[in-house]
Design a protein around this nucleic acid. Structure first.
Length: 803
RNA sequence: GCCGGGAUGGCGGAAUGGCAGACGCAGAGGACUCAAAAUCCUCCGAGGUAACACUCGUGGGGGUUCGACCCCCCCUCCCGGCACCA
């Protein structure tokens, strides 16, 4: 019979599902293992071939762990709020919840066709009121603790989505989602104080096992820098405060710059003799989009504030003050001391405006470019700092600043607070009301969930308000505090809200009393291993670490971090090595591959294709290599084999494979694990396998090609399921060959190979090597100067002519 | 500009100081077949040879070492992230 993958896969998928084979048990005596993939956004396009890569990887780990006796929690759910669904619903005159339902159904079918061992009874949906009740609950707690606040500020406004974006959602000055221009817009927004957790978000990275590039990217994004805050007296009789990481260069500060939005300008307006030019510059800066600001980065612009100047506190010299948009209002104090000799941007500005450049750290040529090296330089032209290293000077000047009461040491972060409101319909309503008398008032906990109103139209309007704002019956309510008339908040939460805590809900998805029950959280603690995309490193991953720390602070969770281990997969590219996209027409639909080759082949191929962490191009011809691999096993094992013991001929290879495959799965080297299995099958073609040999192969194959393995398991007459059988163990002594083929080098060049007994001592190896015909010929008339033997690997003979 | 990751046969990739190219794809030859497909067996980095021998070969240049794809220094190119963060 032929290997009928379609029938086989259907058969086992049904059995697994009907018998709830992969249900996790809270409170089980077995050791627990909580493995997680990033839950998908159920888009209208259905599953992309990129989805199964991380899913299959973690499914392999989950299946292996189950076989090793762990109580595995491997859940799935849907992150279903969001713009694409809403836009699609508007276009097709459907309700977003209806679109979501359809898409989730489709995704579920597709995921089940791939044979993932999810615990489907724990499936969650962030748009389900029973779920978003708790998203709202967490928000209320944050509001209660002062971590949520509303403020008017310039925000990133996507001109196409007609919606505010978080900093993390703006990529190269355009909207991450739709690629449209992002402009600044003054708007009143709900904010979450993630900055309050900046230091802890850095510090606790030391406690988790994330791949290094994730840690580095998070640290860079949070952007901690240490320096000093320092006040300069001005001719207006007040002071201006700057932040600097290089207080050591204070003697070289020849001018000051403040951001165009800085409040001091209003204060000084009366003293400015060129107020008109200043106003014009401010207006021009405000008009620029983020993109334009970055584009113009090369050419420094600015206007001097005529009529006001600052005093350099160490030199006593009067120095000019400029406004320029190269200084950001949102970082530090929005003002800097400019040291053109030792800062690239200040140097460019100084050249442009013909300002003096003073060298205060020796080592470069400040006429040619700014010298920014802190390691090697020695202080010059710096009074009492002269002769010190930069490090010493930093200490000395900071002490001096403290002594004079001019400032203090200061830590700054690049991380900004999280803009948390969106002017759209399809998100969690923010459960607050505005009362003229009482201000912002939270709903009572018993009022949750605050449901989205059922309405006909979700169109955005050009006024920048949420569609909810036009639903008077919903908006107008009473104040929970004073009972007077009040209005609901009409913005909704961003898509990142529901995903910031979903792992907790998996532990206890049906609890209607708490977001997670005490027993469940005490048992599962946190996610043991979380695999996801690098693109979420500074978005979802950072956001959910922040929420988790907040929940830790209010006693909801017992751990400081949500995820103990984080790994990341590479993208699957189109055949030409370009990104897969609809417009390029190179998208691979997993369903097509399943139809033609089966899910087990697809799983194998996706894992075999290359290094899991790296991007790999798809190859439609190479898929069949994996199909052929399964066919070859099928042809060996279609009928029950004889001999329940492992065969002597295959034993060593089997034990080596058990060792290698096990190790490779743990380190996510799935490609070499599969290569090992392929080699083992090649061995089986040389030495016909016994039923015992085949048993080991089926078990190792089970995590990779689970339907196929369970089918063969049944054919060979084994009990129950391969996927529930114990993971095979290897015997170290049986992985060692009695004889080794080792390399023989002469003068470091490979000449031949010889067979030696395993673990032979150096003298034996030397004797065998020298006894080799070819080597003995090479040694004629020569004298051996030195012999290097690497046990079981190589011998190298260093020779010279006999004198 | 800064921070990561890379560059290995016709292709995807193995090997992290010790036989470069595991495994797979593509290709060539053979067996089976009326034939094709499928399957099985053999070959498959380049030069060289009748065949061996031998020489060259992991982006480029230098170095360390008995020995370097692997470690160190310099350079080129590609991918990802950040980007006036003082």
């Amino acid at each position: 019979m032929k290997y009928d993958f379609t029938a086989i896969e259907k058969k086992w998928q049904k059995k697994w599902l009907d018998e709830k084979l992969f249900a996790a048990v809270t409170g089980s005596e077995k050791p627990k293992s909580f493995l997680m993939i990033e839950f998908p956004y159920p888009s209208g396009q259905g599953l992309h071939v990129g989805h199964p890569r991380p899913y299959t990887a973690m499914d392999i780990v989950a299946r292996k762990r189950r076989m090793e006796g762990y109580n595995v929690l491997f859940p799935i759910g849907y992150d279903a709020f969001g713009l694409p669904t809403e836009n699609y619903a508007i276009k097709n005159h459907l309700h977003p919840s209806e679109v979501t339902r359809t898409n989730i159904k489709r995704f579920t079918e597709q995921l089940q066709m791939l044979g993932f061992s999810f615990d489907w009874d724990r499936c969650i949906d962030t748009t389900d009121p029973d779920y978003y009740k708790w998203t709202q609950w967490i928000f209320l707690k944050m509001f209660e603790k002062g971590l949520a606040y509303k403020t008017s500020m310039p925000v990133n406004w996507c001109t196409s989505c007609k919606c505010v974006l978080a900093n993390e959602e703006v990529v190269n000055g355009v909207c991450e989602r739709c690629g449209s221009e992002v402009v600044r817009k003054e708007k009143s927004q709900w904010m979450l104080k993630i900055t309050e957790y900046a230091q802890r978000l850095i510090d606790d990275l030391d406690e988790v096992n994330y791949i290094e590039r994730v840690k580095i990217q998070q640290r860079n994004w949070i952007g901690r820098s240490t320096g000093a805050e320092l006040s300069f007296a001005t001719s207006a009789g007040d002071t201006m405060t700057v932040f600097t990481t290089r207080p050591d260069t204070l003697f070289g500060a020849t001018y000051m710059v403040i951001a165009p939005e800085h409040a001091l300008i209003e204060k000084w307006a009366g003293s400015l003799t060129n107020l008109e030019a200043v106003r014009e510059y401010q207006a021009a800066a405000a008009r620029k989009s983020d993109f334009e600001r970055t584009e113009m980065a090369k050419d420094k612009t600015g206007v001097r504030l005529e009529g006001v100047s600052a005093i350099n506190p160490v030199t006593g010299k009067e120095i000019p003050i400029f406004i320029s948009d190269y200084v950001l209002a949102t970082y530090g104090t929005g003002a800097i001391m400019a040291v053109p000799g030792h800062d690239t941007r200040d140097w460019e500005f100084a050249k442009q405006f013909k300002l003096p450049i003073i060298e205060v750290v020796k080592g470069g040529d400040v006429e040619k470019e700014a010298f920014t090296d802190c390691e090697t330089g020695i202080m010059v032209n710096s009074g009492f700092l002269d002769g010190m290293t930069v490090e010493e000077a930093k200490k000395a000047i900071t002490a001096w600043i403290l002594e004079k009461g001019l400032g203090k040491e200061k830590v700054n972060f690049k991380l900004r607070d999280w803009v948390f409101s969106r002017q759209r319909y399809w998100g969690e309503p923010i459960p607050l009301v505005w009362c003229e008398k009482c201000g912002w008032v939270p709903l009572e906990e018993s009022e949750l969930p605050l449901l989205l109103p059922e309405v006909k139209s979700y169109e955005t309007t050009d006024d920048g308000e949420s569609p909810l704002a036009h639903m008077d019956a919903w908006v107008n309510t009473v104040c929970p505090h004073c009972g007077g008339p009040a209005k609901r908040e009409t913005d909704t939460m961003p898509q990142w809200a529901g995903s910031s805590w979903y792992y907790l809900r998996y532990m206890d998805p049906h609890n209607d009393k708490a977001l997670v029950g005490e027993d469940a959280i005490k048992y599962w603690h946190q996610v043991d291993w979380y695999n996801g995309g690098m693109e979420h490193t500074t978005l979802h991953l950072l956001y959910s670490r922040f929420w988790h720390k907040f929940l830790y602070d209010i006693g909801v969770v017992p751990t400081k971090e949500p995820y103990m281990k984080r790994t990341s997969h590479g993208m699957i590219l189109g055949e030409g090595g370009e990104k897969m996209s609809k417009s390029r027409g190179n998208v691979i639909n997993p369903n097509d591959i399943i139809d033609e080759f089966g899910a087990d082949t697809l799983r194998l191929y996706i894992m075999f294709i290359g290094d899991f962490e790296k991007a790999v191009p798809w190859s439609s011809t190479a898929v069949k290599g994996c199909k052929r691999f399964l066919d070859r096993i099928w042809n060996l094992a279609e009928l029950p084999l004889a001999g329940n013991e492992m065969s002597k001929a295959n034993e060593a290879e089997i034990h080596k494979a058990i060792k290698k495959v096990g190790e490779d799965i743990e380190s996510m080297k799935f490609n070499t694990a599969i290569a090992t299995l392929m080699s083992l099958v090649n061995t089986f073609y040389e030495n016909k396998p016994t039923r015992g040999d085949m048993k080991a192969l089926i078990l190792m194959l089970s995590p990779f090609a689970p339907h196929f393995a369970d089918e063969l398991w049944e054919i060979q007459g084994f009990e129950s399921y391969a996927c529930l059988a114990p993971w095979p163990k290897f015997d170290e002594s049986k992985t060692v060959d009695a004889e080794k083929e080792i390399a023989v080098q002469v003068g470091g060049k490979l000449k031949t190979t010889v067979i030696v007994p395993n673990d032979s001592d150096d003298e034996t190896v030397k004797a065998i090597a020298c006894g080799d015909e070819k080597i003995s010929r090479l040694l004629e008339g020569m004298e051996i100067v030195k012999v290097i033997v690497i046990k079981n690997k190589l011998i190298n003979l260093i020779i010279k002519p006999k004198s």
